[in-house]
Structures are given as C-alpha cells and as structure tokens.
Computed example of a mutant assay.
Amino acid sequence: MIRIGIILGSTRPNRNGPQVAQWVMDAASRRGDAEFELIDLRDHPLPHLDEPVAPMFGPSIHEHTRAWAERIAAFDGFVVVTSEYNGGAPGVLKNAIDHLCAEWTDKAVGFVSYGVHGGTRAVAQLRVVCGTLGMADVSYQVAISLLTDFENHTTFTPRVHHVTALNKTLDQLIAWSAALAPLRADTESALVES
C-alpha cells in the first residue's frame, strides 16, 4: 500500500499548523487507498544544515540527519502543510528538506498552505525546491486564508471548497505516488548494488 507522510512544516509557538495538519490527517485516514502518517518537524529538531558534504554525495556523518533520512525514506509521497512567513516557506521546513536528497527523489508531493494570502507564495517556492530534488509536485493544492478561514485568526474552520480541494490533491498525490513506484524501485536496486 502507498504510504504518505503529512509533514507539518512550522515549529513556531502558537502555530496554526497542527489544526490544519490534523484536518488533513482526519480526511486522509477515511480513505482506503493509502496509509497516512503525521510528521511534525518539532519531533525532528535539526540544526541549520551542518553537513560537511552535500546530501547528494552520500550518507550523513550526523546521527540527527541519518534519523531524519530513515523517517522520510519510508514514504512514497508527502503532503506538506506549510505556513507562509514574509512571502516564503518557513526556514525550518526548507532546512529539513535540504538535509536530504535521495530520500525525496521520485516521490510525489502535494501542498496544503495557510497564510494571509493562503500561503500560495510559500508553495510557489517549495515547488521549485521539490522539483530540483526530483519530486513530482501535484497541481492541486489547498490554500487557506488566515483572514477568512480562521475564527479570530486562531481556530481553523474549513469550508466545503477546502474539502473538495483536499480530496483532489490526495487523489492526484496517491495516483502519482503509485505511478512513480517503478522509478523508486530502480533507485533502491541501484543503491543496494553499489
């Protein structure tokens, strides 16, 4: 069965992300076409990229990066739940992505974003980053406004169009994750042989 990690990409105090990520997890868990697991970056504290060699050139010398790599490698695709800070993705999310390379390659990724403008500028940046790593970013996404979709800017109140967008995002993400499986198998075989 396809395994999808739902990455909660903000670690700041009083973040709205857990509500959004749990909403994604609850909706995803009602499906029967994949297994889903929530990955909170607070549970994986990584220093600013501290690797002496770029991740594309081999395994890390640091235990924290090896543990993060093992966590991510187990999934076929991801939903990234991201806030938008000053027109971009949270630094902690970009840092977590930058710690790895092969663990992201040939996997699908979808986005659920939130912010004053729905988090769309953060997603635009993340699409470039993920594409550079060889990920297939699905076209559907969920964009949630802090101004209209949270009561008092703190309580998430999803609307029908958010549910529709999430279902389309998950449909496409699961289909693409399955379609990319042969490429991941080729990569895994090459790694075992080397």
Rank of each mutant, 00 (worst) to 15 (best):
E70Y: 04
R42M: 11
G32P: 02
A69Q: 04
G32L: 13
P55Y: 02
D50S: 13
Y85K: 02
H48L: 15
A73K: 10
S29C: 07
E37C: 01
I39K: 10
M56W: 07
E84I: 01
Y85G: 06
R15G: 02
A69N: 01
D26E: 13
P52D: 13
P13T: 09
G58R: 03
E63V: 14
F78H: 11
H44E: 03
G58S: 12
P13K: 05
A21M: 01
E37A: 08
L38P: 05
R30N: 13
D33H: 06
S60A: 09
V53W: 00
F75M: 12
R15E: 00
Y85L: 06
V24K: 08
R30D: 09
H48C: 13
A73P: 02
D33T: 15
A54T: 09
R30I: 03
R31T: 11
V20T: 08
R30F: 00
F75K: 06
H62E: 13
P55G: 10
D76M: 07
P13E: 03
Q22L: 05
R42V: 09
P45F: 05
L38R: 12
R31P: 11
D43H: 12
T65S: 10
V81W: 10
V24I: 09
P13S: 08
F36W: 03
V53G: 02
T82W: 09
H44W: 10
A69E: 09
R42I: 07
A27N: 07
L49A: 09
G58N: 08
W68T: 09
I72P: 10
T82K: 12
A21W: 03
V80L: 14
H48V: 15
D33F: 03
E51D: 11
S29Q: 14
A67F: 01
A69T: 04
A67L: 15
R66C: 02
Y85I: 04
R71D: 05
D43T: 06
